[in-house]
Computed example of a mutant assay.
Amino acid sequence: MRGRFFSISFSIALAGAATFLPASPFIAEAQAQSCGQLWYQRNAIYARAGYCFQTARARATFGENCFPPYGRLSPNQQARVNALQYQEDMRGCPR
């Protein structure tokens, strides 16, 4: 009986928690990361898309190579960048 009560209570708690989950799976993944990790992931997306970085930090991390499409992102990449930027803003990370 005790195990069944726990199972029902746990299911109810999970159902209530589901309403507070982020709308994007990218946000859920990003929530457990530091500002530095968020910065790296965001800029790695741009680097893979050939973005020409202007800052010394980004150039030191990702190199000075840029190529077409010069940072133009697909809709999925842009959604990921937006989610990472949102998390950076929520944490007060510098950009």
Rank of each mutant, 00 (worst) to 15 (best):
C52P: 06
R72H: 13
Q37E: 15
Q33E: 13
A47M: 03
Q54I: 13
V81L: 04
G50R: 05
R42A: 04
E64F: 05
S7V: 09
P22W: 04
Y51G: 01
G92E: 01
Q41R: 13
E29S: 07
C52H: 13
A56S: 07
R59L: 11
L73Y: 08
T61M: 15
Q37K: 14
P69F: 08
Q77S: 02
R59Y: 03
T61F: 07
C52N: 13
A18G: 11
A58I: 09
A44C: 05
F62M: 03
T55K: 01
A56L: 11
S34W: 12
A79R: 01
F20K: 10
A15M: 12
A83L: 01
P75Q: 08
I8L: 15
S11I: 13
I8Q: 07
Q87D: 00
R59Q: 14
I12S: 02
D89Y: 09
F10A: 10
R57G: 00
F6N: 02
S9E: 07
R48L: 12
F67V: 00
F6V: 08
A28R: 15
L84G: 07
Y70E: 01
Q78W: 09
P69A: 06
I12M: 09
G36R: 06
R80D: 03
S7F: 11
R72L: 08
G50D: 10
M1F: 14
A17T: 02
C52Q: 12
P25R: 04
Q85W: 04
R91M: 13
E64Y: 11
A32M: 09
W39A: 07
G16E: 00
F67Q: 03
S24E: 11
N76G: 11
N82M: 08
A56G: 02
G36N: 13
G50E: 03
R80Y: 02
Q78Y: 02
A30C: 04
S7M: 12
L21N: 06
M1H: 11
P22S: 06
L84E: 00
F10S: 11
A17G: 12
G63K: 05
A18W: 14
Q77G: 05
I8W: 06
Q41N: 14
R95C: 01
E29P: 00
L21G: 06
F5Q: 08
F53I: 01
Q78C: 03
L38T: 02
P25D: 06
Y86P: 00
A18C: 14
F5K: 10
C66V: 06
Q33T: 05
